[in-house]
Write a protein that binds this DNA or RNA. Sequence first.
DNA 1: ACAATATATGAATATATGTTCATATATAAC
DNA 2: GTTATATATGAACATATATTCATATATTGT
Lengths: 108, 108
Amino acid sequence: MNEDKCIRKEEIDINALYDLSELFKVFGDSTRIRIISVLMDGEMCVYHISENLGMNQSAISHQLRILRSAGLVRPRRDGKTIYYSLDDEHVETIFKTGMEHILHKHND
Amino acid sequence: MNEDKCIRKEEIDINALYDLSELFKVFGDSTRIRIISVLMDGEMCVYHISENLGMNQSAISHQLRILRSAGLVRPRRDGKTIYYSLDDEHVETIFKTGMEHILHKHND
DNA sequence: ACAATATATGAATATATGTTCATATATAAC
DNA sequence: GTTATATATGAACATATATTCATATATTGT
């Protein structure tokens, strides 16, 4: 009974786990991590981000799109310029916990 | 002075950020996330992990090696069997924070 | 409407990565 | 030592992904 309304625990898990891996995949690229890193100091426009990382504007735009789709950054338009900032606190929390892990392992 | 001993802040950062992205890359695969997920219930041997995920043993061994190199899981041998468990609390913390982000975004 | 500037996007290419198959290593039982 | 079992590893293949180049879109100023 209620078979079609019922979502089994396993199904929920396997979908959630897939989404979770997709989320971490977004953190798992050095360009995107560096973008997140500079945005931790506050919002920044696309050109300044690309300048900061020493990469061309197109590459940055492509990566910003991926960060945006994952809900990690948020754009704000001001005239021709678009400023990006981190979307919520989880982004910083995940970043910092990961960094703790690294530093912890490094001191063994 | 002291130029060769001195590591500039930027250099530290760029290396740490690279390592950080490498760490998240390890989380960023659905097979590895599922392995971490089952190990959150306690240690498990390779065969049972592969049974649990419905994947062949070789694929699991390959992924366990990557998880091991990243310091996320730890092996314990008992006879012919090798039991794997999560290495430290950071693994669960990162996993759970990521999951929070997902659920949070899902309820918008 | 036109030119200039900021950002986004599509296609192409090069590289990285996950899985499978076959096989190697390690331990235990006999 | 031989056989059986558990896990690990190397090579090959298929797929995914990041960057570049060229170009499109959007906004502003004239």
